[in-house]
């Protein structure tokens, strides 16, 4: 079985931002030369997320609005205190919780060099505490 891992840097622009990375993933798959297998798209960030859904502009706004509605920034978060290991105050519990709700990876099957996504499915990276420099790990496994 072959494997290829690429670590792709993304610089985000907003505090909450949903970025379609499907074509970026396709390019990594092409470079890998692997035709059949699995693609694991993963983020190591605890205030970011990866998910699959439809890329429609109204829906993208809804995702952002509902993330903010379900997990508001103002609340009595126990996380919000000085973090000695970071040397700064932790003030983003809401970003961590939104990240847990979205999840940190998706696995997409690969067949004949094509991602087996549904017609409306796209792969999204979500910035939840930006702007920042972020990294997405794209792992292609197969033959």
């Amino acid at each position: 079985m072959k494997a290829r891992v690429e670590r792709v840097k993304i610089i985000t622009n907003k505090k909450t931002e949903i970025i379609d990375i499907t074509d970026l993933v396709r390019n990594v798959v092409k470079r890998s030369g692997i035709k059949d297998g699995l693609i694991n798209i993963f983020t190591r960030h605890t205030t970011a997320g990866i998910f699959l859904n439809e890329n429609e502009s109204g829906l993208i706004r809804d995702f952002v609005n509902y993330l903010h509605k379900i997990v508001p920034e103002d609340d009595n978060y126990y996380h919000h205190h000085f973090f000695y290991k970071d040397g700064r105050a932790a003030v983003n519990a809401w970003a961590h919780i939104r990240s847990v709700l979205l999840g940190h990876f998706v696995v997409v099957p690969l067949k004949n060099g094509d991602l087996l996504l549904g017609d409306r499915q796209r792969i999204f990276f979500t910035e939840l505490d930006g702007p920042q420099s972020r990294e997405v790990i794209i792992q292609v496994l197969g033959e």
């Binding site: 622009n13 907003k14 700064r88 920042q132 420099s133």
Partner: peptide, 23 residues
């Protein structure tokens, strides 16, 4: 930065500071 200023988060590119200002 780590031991004296006492900040242990990753350095970021200058463009992140500029984008933070815009935001």
């Amino acid at each position: 930065i780590k031991d004296v200023f006492y900040l242990r988060t990753r350095p970021q590119p200058l463009t992140v500071l500029i984008k933070q200002m815009e935001q």
